[in-house]
């Protein structure tokens, strides 16, 4: 396990002094860690706990609560299908199953060619355009199974 680079340590220090409590700085610090590899390992949480002087369990609580932090490596295209109430009512479960089948991947895992990960996530705040998904940092809305497949295939080229 490599140690944190200096710029990450400087960032953590700055964020920790920015808020009333150090716990408030957990989310920005986790984002910073995820930037480099796309996911966060338990070892990194242990290191972050030391750097932030916060019990590791509290960082783990935050990380496991939010679906935007990846606990495992993800593919080049991280397809995050919203599975909250509005999207579910508009068929997001079926959409997820369809995508998993089409790209031959289990929910939350990386496809064998390392290109696609399909995962179920919590509300992305776009209920009016349900069902929707987020691929890496972009939103794709008002989907049907066919349109979603097309979008991913296009991006994958």
């Amino acid at each position: 396990m490599e140690a944190f680079s200096d710029d990450i340590l400087v960032f953590i220090k700055k964020e920790c002094s920015r808020y009333e409590t150090r716990r408030s700085a957990i989310i920005p610090c986790l984002y910073k860690l995820q930037e480099k590899r796309g996911w966060i390992s338990p070892e990194q949480i242990g290191q972050l706990a030391v750097a932030m002087d916060i019990p590791p369990v509290q960082i783990n609580e935050v990380m496991k609560f939010y679906t935007m932090f990846n606990q495992q490596p993800v593919g080049k295209l991280h397809v995050q299908v919203c599975n909250n109430i509005s999207c579910t009512m508009n068929g997001s479960r079926e959409l997820t199953d369809h995508l998993c089948k089409t790209f031959n991947v289990k929910s939350g895992e990386v496809s064998s060619d390392g290109r696609v990960t399909v995962s179920k996530v919590e509300c992305l705040g776009s209920c009016d355009t349900a069902p929707m998904m987020q691929i890496n940092d972009e939103y794709y809305e008002n989907l049907t199974p066919e349109s979603a497949t097309k979008i991913i295939e296009k991006l994958g080229k």
Binding site: P42, I45, P55, P56, V57, Q58, N60, E61, K64, F65, E122
Partner: peptide, 19 residues
């Protein structure tokens, strides 16, 4: 000693220790 926490959310929430 801060060993315990609640992980995940909604109906998948569970109590546990880090790792």
């Amino acid at each position: 000693t801060n060993e315990l926490g609640i992980f995940n959310r909604g109906d998948r929430s569970e109590v546990g220790t880090f790792e």
